[in-house]
């Protein structure tokens, strides 16, 4: 343990750079591709998808609506029209199958920031002394719904960095970049995985769809594990891995798993694979 170990280095040596970064590259393609589809409209006049992550219309007919935003609207006393409700059902259906937090790893633009911050945090070996509970996000989620009911307003959208950053890129940024900068500073220098892993109520809402998700990461060849801990080092929710490696089921069952597939990438022993829940 005296020698510094860079997570993923051994995987690159054993499997080659491409196979040690496959899911990361796919994920970046997905994140940037979705952002690009939104941006094609205002930049090039090609409207594949109109709106923002809080609500949009894809290909001119398919409504998509963020469930947390609709939940706040309902709590605030407004029953949205059919388009928004159908859009919510579409989103719920998609993420119930592929895993709620697939949104966090594959769609959310903030993930680009938090991944960069986590990388910097690892490189600089910063151990922040802030200790927050990972359940704080669920409390926040509850408080947001209650606050929406009390104030009669979709209150989280005053501050939601997820939609704020995207809306800023699509319309006008204002001071929205401040929120992104704060999250970067929090994650890089104060608390590793501070935003996505501890605070973000949007991720918490999506993770509630993860209990039944069909798509899961499985430690299929866990007998080959050498306890190198590379997967723990890169995982934004490291507590979800251990049960799959050491517990009774070899599937990562936790609803907090993002299905990002980074553990699959960095494992030199090729322990992990994407699989069905079973």
């Amino acid at each position: 343990m005296s020698k510094k170990r860079t997570p993923g280095q051994e995987a690159i040596e054993k499997k080659g750079w491409l196979r040690a970064n496959t899911w990361l590259l796919l994920r970046r393609a997905s994140q940037l591709g979705i952002l690009g589809m939104f941006l094609l409209g205002p930049l090039a006049g090609l409207w594949l998808i109109k709106g923002t992550l809080s609500a949009s219309t894809a290909f001119g007919f398919l409504p998509l609506t963020d469930p947390l935003t609709v939940a706040q609207s309902l709590a605030a006393g407004h029953v949205p029209e059919a388009a928004a409700l159908v859009g919510m059902l579409v989103v719920l259906a998609i993420y119930t199958v592929i895993g709620g937090r697939m949104y966090c790893a594959w769609v959310c633009p903030i993930n680009l920031i938090t991944d960069t911050a986590a990388w910097l945090n690892r490189r600089l070996e910063i151990k922040g002394n802030l200790n927050l509970s990972r359940s704080l996000r669920y409390w926040l989620l509850g408080m947001i719904i209650i606050s929406a009911a009390i104030t009669g307003s979709i209150i989280w959208e005053w501050f939601n960095p997820v939609t704020m950053l995207q809306r800023g890129l699509l319309f006008s940024m204002g001071f929205g970049w401040l929120l992104a900068a704060e999250i970067f500073i929090l994650d890089a220098f104060v608390l590793r995985h501070g935003w996505c892993g501890h605070l973000c109520p949007v991720g918490a809402a999506y993770s509630l769809l993860g209990f039944t998700a069909a798509l899961r990461v499985k430690a299929a060849r866990r007998e080959r594990c050498t306890d190198c801990t590379d997967c723990f080092a890169v995982c934004p929710e490291p507590q979800v891995i251990r049960p799959a490696l050491k517990g009774s089921s070899d599937v990562i069952l936790s609803h907090n798993c993002l299905n990002c597939g980074r553990c699959i990438d960095v494992c030199p022993q090729e322990v992990f694979v994407f699989s069905k829940r079973s």
Binding site: A55, D66, S73, I154
Partner: peptide
């Protein structure tokens, strides 16, 4: 309006 608008910009 603040309870209903989803902030989508459409």
């Amino acid at each position: 309006f603040l309870a209903a608008c989803l902030r989508c910009g459409q």
